[in-house]
């Protein structure tokens, strides 16, 4: 009885954010260890891990944006569409108009910014449900992508290809390949951008007034207003940041695949939401952590890798596993929070 009570008090003393973060990290570590034990080989090489990062840098960026919107109590399902629109626009600009790489980056940022301003305005100042706004945003972006160019193609622009192929070696890590040559582990530029964004956003959320306002608004909008926070502006900024990150993610994605296609990043919004939730962000708002989101992305992509290397490479398995994982995490969240509430009530 006494031990039970103590357990309950530890359980209740942890903040919601930290509690969910710990669950996430534990699950990721267990999963990666499981992968190493089950499949061995590949998963012990550092490059396998870095390849996960390379392939998912864009997802990390969109998930971070998604987390911020979700912490503030909203949602943005247009991010996948924005990524597709950005990569198609940049591809067309670079390839058909032989454009400048630097300008193409500006295009990506501008698209993200425009999305953020419009969606943020509709959600924050006109008080329209974020889901509806971003659903329309998603369809608009997908539609616009096909209007810009309806068929997929590879970008041949030299400056761009050079940038795309830039590899940054990770010091101290590498492996010896079959021929016995030491190959250093590498990451792409996108990964660096993504990790910088993670660090920056972590700092933003933890240590700035704006960051804490996101949590306050997500926790209780009415209270936040009474505490003197500009709720509308906070909501607006959350959407602005999210869409801007989606714009950057679009470029990072483009840099990774090197092509434009209407079907790019299909379902990415779903993966971003799933990563955020797995990373311990609550759909109800007010709870979440960028580091958790990073681990959420890693968990998600690790499980995809496991599924793929287990021979279940039919396309549908990915969708089903992600959905199943999301479902499990949603239920865990719902149950954990209900338990916690009950524990508090009886105290």
């Amino acid at each position: 009885m006494a031990s039970e009570k103590k357990k309950a008090s530890i359980f209740t003393r942890l903040s919601d954010t930290n509690l969910l973060l710990i669950i996430t990290i534990v699950i990721f570590v267990l999963m990666y260890l499981g992968a190493v034990l089950l499949q061995g080989g590949g998963f012990t090489k550092p490059q396998t891990f870095f390849n996960i990062l390379n392939a998912n840098a864009a997802l990390i960026l969109t998930s971070c944006g998604m987390s911020i919107v979700m912490i503030t109590g909203g949602i943005d399902i247009s991010v996948g569409g924005v990524v597709a629109l950005v990569s198609m626009s940049c591809a067309v600009y670079l390839d058909h108009h032989n454009g400048n790489v630097f300008v193409s980056i500006l295009i990506a940022l501008a698209i993200g910014l425009a999305y953020g301003v419009v969606q943020g305005f509709l959600v924050a100042y006109l008080d329209i449900q974020p889901f509806i706004v971003s659903l329309a945003g998603m369809f608009f972006a997908r539609g616009m992508t096909t209007i810009v160019n309806s068929s997929p193609f590879n970008v041949e622009n030299e400056a761009f290809v050079a940038l795309k192929n830039t590899r940054i070696n990770v010091p101290g890590l590498g492996s010896v390949n079959k021929k016995g040559v030491y190959v250093p582990a590498y990451v792409e530029i996108g990964v660096v951008v993504a990790l910088l964004a993670v660090v920056f956003l972590f700092f933003l959320l933890q240590y700035t007034k704006l960051g804490r306002s996101f949590y306050a608004v997500g926790g209780n909008k009415q209270s936040a207003l009474m505490l003197g926070i500009n709720v509308k502006r906070t909501k607006f900024l959350s959407h602005l940041i999210c869409s801007l990150l989606a714009g950057i993610a679009g470029y990072v994605y483009f840099l990774h695949v090197g092509s434009g296609s209407p079907s790019h990043a299909s379902g990415m919004e779903m993966n971003a939401i799933a990563s955020s939730i797995i990373g311990g962000t609550m759909l109800t708002g007010g709870v979440g952590n960028i580091i958790g989101t990073l681990f959420g992305v890693l968990s998600l992509s690790t499980i995809q890798n496991i599924v793929a290397s287990a021979g279940l490479d039919e396309a549908w398995w990915t969708g089903i596993t992600i959905a199943a994982m999301l479902c499990i995490f949603l239920i865990i969240q719902s149950v954990v929070m209900a338990q916690k509430k009950r524990a508090l009530k009886t105290n």
Binding site: L126, I128, V133, A136, F139, G143, I147
Partner: peptide, 22 residues
């Protein structure tokens, strides 16, 4: 394929028109 973009515009106009704030 492009249909979605036009419909999205219609949706936005609709929700804006019916938004209480508006």
């Amino acid at each position: 394929d492009a249909l979605a973009a036009y419909k999205a515009v219609v949706v936005i106009i609709l929700v804006v028109v019916s938004a209480p704030v508006f």
